[in-house]
Computed example of a mutant assay.
Amino acid sequence: MNWRFLGSLSDARKSGCSGVYLIVHQGIFERVVYVGVSNNVGRRISEHYDGYLRGNRTIYNAGRGDDVYKFMSTYKIYNHTEHYQKLANQYKIWASTTCNLSNPINLLSEKQEFGFQWEDILVNKYLPQLVVWALPFADYTYEKASVIESVIQTKLIKAFDLRGFFNLRQISILGKIEHPNLTKISQRIDSPKVDSASHVVLSNLHTSGFPIEAHRIFYMQLDNEICQREKVKGVRLAHKQKKIAQHKKHGKPWTHEDLEKLRVMLVDFEMKPSEMSAYLGRAPQAITKRIIYNDKFSMGKWRSSLKWL
């Protein structure tokens, strides 16, 4: 079994082969952005192509001079959904599923419209960089193809820390994984033309372990971005430590005892959040936020008894 280059998305629509296929973004590095299977790859790619034009597929603001994994990978990121949302608001990600909607939406930034800016990014920047590789099957069955598909997805996700599909946990960012527990395939398959880190991963589908070499190469490829993420993380941790030094219960859950103290100080002593701060070990802003939450949750009834919370 050997990979076959089908060309651009437009050219790949003419293929009639069946098997596993990869949609690859040709930027600074050749990165896999989607893995799928079909008994007619050309027909399936036509669906992808038309979906992109409608805004029913995920689009990244990445052209020839960009690394699309700068947006897809959440390596060194704690909250990946929050990270993706931030990128979406900066017009870096248009997050959409395969649903055929009359008015497609960005799942990460629903106020955005597909027309104008995103359509221009798609047509002139992202779509021209997408190419397709296929692994044809002479004796195609969905079960056999989906096994290879799943192992490719699982290994790439682990190698590059691609996490889930934004805010939909049941779908991976590379497509739905049919066999999430599989770690290897029985036969050895050569890699198509992809970046060196992905090449290591795709050349070792027959081994159950994770190729450490791929991680080392990826770290070098994304060095500048990783350094920036570590710097941001350091600043955030320093800010957190400063808050903890000022307020010993900063970031900790509210206990029943804490809530009762808050209620008594607010109702019986009519204290302000700034006055409560030293007693509760929390910043005045956090105390105010909790009071608003309690009032909203219990319609103000918690002020007479915590049983309403």
Score class of each variant (00 low, 15 high):
H247V: 02
K248H: 11
K248W: 03
K249Y: 04
K249H: 07
K249S: 07
H250A: 11
H250R: 01
H250I: 01
H250K: 04
G251H: 03
G251P: 04
G251W: 01
G251R: 02
K252Q: 15
K252A: 13
P253T: 09
W254F: 03
W254E: 10
W254V: 12
W254N: 08
E257I: 08
D258Q: 03
L259A: 10
L259S: 11
L259E: 09
L259N: 09
E260M: 10
E260I: 06
E260C: 05
E260T: 06
K261H: 06
L262C: 09
L262P: 07
L262M: 08
L262Q: 08
L262K: 00
L262G: 04
L262H: 04
R263V: 14
R263F: 01
R263L: 13
V264E: 12
V264L: 14
V264T: 13
V264R: 14
V264C: 08
M265C: 09
F269G: 11
F269E: 15
F269C: 12
E270T: 14
E270F: 08
E270D: 15
E270C: 14
E270S: 15
M271S: 06
M271H: 09
K272L: 13
P273A: 02
P273M: 05
P273Q: 05
S274G: 13
S274M: 08
S274I: 07
S277H: 01
S277W: 00
A278C: 04
A278S: 15
A278V: 13
Y279T: 11
Y279M: 06
L280D: 02
L280E: 02
L280F: 00
G281L: 00
G281H: 00
G281M: 01
R282Y: 00
R282I: 00
A283S: 06
A283D: 15
A283G: 05
P284L: 01
P284D: 02
P284C: 03
P284I: 02
Q285P: 00
Q285M: 04
Q285C: 04
Q285E: 14
A286M: 06
I287C: 06
I287N: 02
T288K: 12
K289E: 11
K289C: 10
R290P: 03
R290A: 02
R290M: 12
R290Q: 15
R290T: 08
I291D: 07
I291N: 08
I291W: 01
I292D: 14
I292A: 11
Y293Q: 14
Y293G: 00
N294K: 03
N294Y: 04
D295N: 15
K296H: 03
K296P: 00
F297N: 12
F297H: 06
F297T: 09
S298G: 08
S298K: 00
